[in-house]
Design a binder for these strands. Structure first.
Lengths: 250, 250
DNA sequence: GCACCAGTTCCCATTCAATGGGAATTCCTC
DNA sequence: GAGGAATTCCCATTGAATGGGAACTGGTGC
């Protein structure tokens, strides 16, 4: 049988293979990949070998597979993610030097907040956000900013719920969330105490390019600290990021 | 004709499509991709549409293609590159705070130095190294370190040359390069004045994991500065990175 | 407004890259 | 040595993929 019984395209299968790798699963045997990707053993061995030939996967000395540096290189070098985080990094570092907690950069991706960068002070508290990780839009300050400025066709499905609680103060009532999103648009920032962790407050501001919100810059602070102090720091950083993005496009 | 006349696999074609995106070419029409990838127009339109369906590419409002955030996410989240640069970043920042120039992290990839991270002080001089960019091994301090500790099957083809000059003091004589590599292994660092730019000196040290050199940490300094001052800073950073990598694996 | 050009979309006859079951081999653990 | 899991290999089968070509769309220049 020359082609898949399921009608899959090859590209869809490749994506399913790559999706089996996660932050907590960076190494696995080819057979494990096949089980997770739902592919027959001989098929997955062939696909994984081809991906390794092209450098998209690599084998370690135990013949387990990991994501290849070539994949990293191809995915990064011409990407919007790299452009955004390189424009942002110096300003995030400056903000971080003042705030000395967590400073993060996130974009809206498939109905969630995808974190492009996270800087963390060694003494800062716990933070579940991860680089290349996701969080629900309604349950993080960055996500709330992204949601507030999103097109209706993205915002409405989120508001239609369900809105799952992640922390003790996650907003789970759609009506309250609408009010909060309107407030974010009016004030230009999100402050989300205990949205994820009881002992933390997230604060976020938008980053705009060509009139649209393309990312959110956020800080995660101890609950008892004053977010009012972080907001101007984040705003200034955001404005400088926007200026650098404009300069880079000229 | 069901499959390619050239005998290409689908995966090889996808890689050729992704390879058309570079740091200086982040947006292009599908027809341009096809020309660069050497694919017929109807074929490349189909492949690009499938890649976009999976989020590996995205279209902007002018219907030009760019690398997709989903590709970035899949390539990053379980990758060695992310693990390395996250272990390295705090220590690079500390080194950078002292040196206030460029601080870089590179790995050996396909016979070249691939840069995973670069931190640059606003006042620092020019530097052609780029994140997700490559430099020849013999023509950068990080590359020289990676080459010095590489397996013979990687080192020998480089020494077999040709060794192209990149800057005024790039080593292009294989015999001299062998001597320099031996010196690097003996002293544990590379110092490469004017290897790339006449006004700069590169200094690099190895980063080891499980007894092998997996990356190089480097700094690019003004030519007239004393590299002797940078070496202990880079060494300390490297040792802390190694400690963090060990801790992360326990 | 028309001509021209480039990019995109669509169609479809053709076909070989891809399939996956199954056997054999290898490696590891007990 | 047995058992189990992973890997490698084989190969008859076949439909996802091919790509030429036509039609359509949009932009530019005259």
């Amino acid at each position: 049988m020359a082609n898949s019984r399921s009608g899959d395209s090859m590209i869809a299968r490749v994506v399913r293979v790559l999706e089996t790798f996660e932050a907590d699963r960076t190494v696995q045997s080819t057979s494990e990949i096949g089980r997770r990707a739902g592919l027959p053993s001989s098929t997955v061995h062939r696909i994984v070998d081809q991906l390794a030939d092209e450098g998209l996967l690599e084998f370690d000395e135990d013949h387990n597979a990991r994501l290849g540096m070539r994949l990293w290189e191809l995915a990064l070098r011409g990407s919007t993610a790299l452009r955004l985080r390189q424009a942002a990094l110096p300003h995030m570092e400056r903000a971080q030097a003042v705030l000395r907690q967590h400073t993060q950069l996130a974009v809206l991706e498939r109905g969630e907040a995808l974190f492009l960068e996270r800087l963390s002070h060694p003494d800062a508290g716990a933070n579940i956000a991860r680089v290349a990780g996701r969080l629900p839009l309604h349950a993080s300050s960055a996500g709330l900013v992204l949601l507030a400025y999103a097109e209706a066709d993205i915002r409405n499905p989120v508001l239609a719920g369900p809105l799952t609680a992640v922390g003790p103060a996650t907003i789970t009532d759609p009506a309250r969330l609408r009010i909060e999103l309107a407030r974010i648009k009016r004030t230009g920032f999100a402050a989300a105490p205990a949205s994820i962790e009881a002992v933390s407050t997230g604060v976020a501001v938008p980053i705009r390019e060509a009139g649209r919100v393309i990312a959110a810059l956020s800080a995660v602070l101890p609950r008892e600290s004053y977010p009012d102090r972080a907001i101007p720091v984040l705003r200034e950083a955001s404005q400088r990021i926007e200026a650098d993005l404009r300069a880079a496009r000229s």
